[in-house]
Design a binder for these strands. Structure first.
Lengths: 149, 149
DNA sequence: CTACAACCTCAAGCGCACTTGAAGTCAAGC
DNA sequence: GCTTGACTTCAAGTGCGCTTGAGGTTGTAG
C-alpha cells in the first residue's frame, strides 16, 4: 500500500511539487515531463515525476533554461523510473555550473566589500565599478561604435 | 585634460560600459540613468553614468530587477556625482541579498553532492529531490487543490 | 440526478529586459 | 556641399516562462 498511487492526477502533482497545473502542462508541452491518460483523457503521472519536477526547479535555481533542462532530462529514460546512476550523472553535470555561479557571486561580494572598505571608487581603480570600462586605460580614444551593433 | 570629457555621447558610453545603446535608452526610460542634451538634441552623459551603469549590471547579477535597482538608485543624487558614502550605502544594502543567494546555491550544491554520495534518492528521505513534497510525510491525503490558483 | 470541482484544449496575454525597424536629424571628414 | 555614420523618436517585435480565459468534459459527493 503505497503512500501515493502511481497514477497521480495533475492537481495532486501540483500540490505536492509546489508547481501550478498550468506550469506542469507547459512542462509537458516542452518535453520536460510526460503523463499517461486515464479513460477520460485526464493526465496520470507516475510517482517519479515528482522527482523530475523537483529536478527541474532545482536546475532553474542553478540558472539553466528549460531548453537546457530538457536536454539534460533527455539523458534519462522517459518512460520508467530513473536509476540512482541516472540522477547522479545529471547532477554531476550541474556541479561545475553551480560552482562557477557561486564563485562569480562571491567575487562580486568580495569586490563590493573591498570597495566599501577601501574608498577606491575612482573610475580608474575600482574593478567593481569600472570592470567594463575597457577603454579607460588607454586614453580618450575609441569613439568608434555603431549604434546598431 | 580629462581622460574622458564629461559630455559622453551614447555610443561611447555603450562601448565603455559594454551595454548597448538601445539598453541605455531603455534604462533612461525606466529612470535608471539620465542624460542632458546637446544643442542637436543628442544625449550627453556625465562620467559618473559609467558607474551607474556598472552598478546596474552588478545589481542584475545579484538578482535584482530593474525596478528594484531603480529604487536603490533613487537613493543617489540624480544630477550630480554620488559620493563614496552614497555608493557604500547602496552596496551595503545588497550584501545580505548576495549572501543569501550564495548560501542558497551552496546548500543546493551540498545537497546535490550528498545525494550523489549517499544514494538517498528515495522519495521520502532526499531533501533535494523531495523538498517540495510537503504532503508526502502525512499519508496519501491532500487530494485537494484547484486547477485555477 | 444534480451539482460542482477538477480536468481538458487551444489561443491569447503577461512581465521582464531588451531589440529591431522605420523614418528622420545631426555632425564630421573630404 | 555631400556623404556617411552616429544619433533621434516611437511603435512593434522577441524570447522566456509561464498565466489566463473561453468553452467544454469528467469524476465524485450528496
Amino acid at each position: 500500500m503505497p503512500l501515493l498511487p502511481d497514477q497521480i492526477p495533475i492537481g495532486v502533482l501540483a500540490a505536492r511539487s509546489g508547481v501550478s497545473t498550468s506550469a506542469l502542462r507547459f512542462y509537458e508541452s516542452r518535453g520536460l515531463i510526460a503523463a499517461s491518460r486515464n479513460p477520460g483523457n485526464q493526465r496520470r503521472y507516475p510517482r517519479y515525476t515528482l522527482r523530475r519536477v523537483a529536478f527541474i526547479r532545482a536546475a532553474q535555481q542553478v540558472g539553466l533554461s528549460l531548453d537546457e533542462i530538457q536536454v539534460a532530462l533527455a539523458g534519462l529514460p522517459a518512460d520508467r523510473a530513473p536509476a540512482k546512476a541516472d540522477w547522479a550523472r545529471l547532477s554531476r553535470a550541474w556541479r561545475p555550473r553551480l560552482d562557477a555561479r557561486i564563485t562569480e557571486l562571491e567575487k562580486l561580494r568580495d569586490e563590493l566589500t573591498g570597495c566599501i572598505g577601501c574608498g577606491c571608487l575612482s573610475l580608474r581603480t575600482c574593478r567593481l565599478i569600472n570592470r567594463d570600462d575597457v577603454a579607460a586605460a588607454d586614453g580618450a580614444g575609441s569613439y568608434l561604435q555603431s549604434d546598431r551593433g
